[in-house]
């Protein structure tokens, strides 16, 4: 299923979509794939697979540590394609979230072609904006891949309009001015940003950064509240695995429980 069909289905069911993130190869190659499949099984609608990178400026300590662990275990760019294939085989759409240099190094066109071949849905690109470099746009269009760019509370209305005009799939609204990491309370910057973004586009708008439990997911999805079409969760999943070092089965149980809580949250709204 495509990302847009998945969001449309969720919308038809009167709920938000749940987008779950883990870096590829974490806690290790096999465990990472098992973790993503457990998240699919327990109710994630879209999977976001992080491509571990040495200099992740948009990530807080939790995701950094996980990505570093994957790199220390010998992660290679091509490994992400195998993981994409494994997730896509379940019918759940798989996006890759990546900093730009690994893609440029692999070859932008080659990466797009290989991602499409693996059944990947597209890319989320945290450190490039649509006006930074036209190469990704061209390759994504050629291979019908989704282009998910970020909007931020600091974005002007002009920049939001420019950004959404280049997005395909959904628009990623960062709820806080800051980096990834679970936060105890939902940011009050999320609501105004979602409203401004929705004024500029009919694409689904998903909110990420800081969400860690079902109650927060419900708050972000609430139609009379923030009103997001999707809820993106990352660090909380990473944390669930980090809390069970060396015990993958316990980690997977924690992931499943967290996914179920979040999936109930997006349905409670």
């Amino acid at each position: 299923m495509s990302v847009s069909t998945t969001f449309a289905t969720a919308r038809a069911e009167g709920r938000a979509a749940l987008v779950g993130y883990l870096p590829c190869g974490f806690p290790d190659a096999a465990g990472g794939d098992a973790a993503l499949l457990a998240m699919v099984e327990a109710g994630c609608d879209v999977i976001e697979i992080g491509l571990p990178y040495s200099d992740p400026v948009m990530d807080g300590p939790t995701v950094q540590a996980a990505a570093q662990q994957a790199l220390d275990n010998g992660f290679r760019t091509r490994d992400v394609l195998r993981t994409v294939e494994a997730v896509a085989a379940t019918g759940t759409p798989a996006l890759v979230m990546t900093y730009w240099n690994p893609v440029e190094r692999y070859g932008v066109e080659r990466f797009a072609a290989d991602l499409a071949n693996a059944g990947g849905a597209g890319l989320i690109t945290p450190d490039i904006t649509p006006d930074a470099d036209p190469a990704w746009e061209q390759a994504a269009d050629a291979h019908a891949l989704d282009k998910v760019y970020l909007v931020a509370p600091s974005s002007t209305d002009e920049r939001i309009a420019m950004t959404v005009a280049h997005c395909r799939g959904f628009v990623y609204a960062t709820a806080v001015m800051g980096v990834t990491g679970a936060r105890a309370t939902t940011s009050d910057l999320a609501g105004p940003l979602v409203a401004r973004t929705k004024r500029a586009t009919d694409l689904p708008v998903a909110v990420g950064l800081g969400i860690s439990n079902g109650d927060q997911a419900a708050e972000v999805a609430a139609k009379d509240g923030i009103g997001a079409d999707g809820v993106i969760v990352g660090s909380a999943f990473v944390r669930a695995l980090l809390d069970h070092p060396g015990d993958l089965r316990a980690g997977l149980r924690a992931l499943t429980a967290l996914t179920e809580d979040l999936a109930a949250g997006v349905r409670r709204a």
Partner: peptide, 16 residues
């Protein structure tokens, strides 16, 4: 921008 150096590869949050 085609073969050049520099530019601005940054998170949207910092562009403003």
């Amino acid at each position: 921008p085609e073969r050049g150096f520099g530019g601005r590869f940054m998170p949207e949050a910092l562009v403003a």
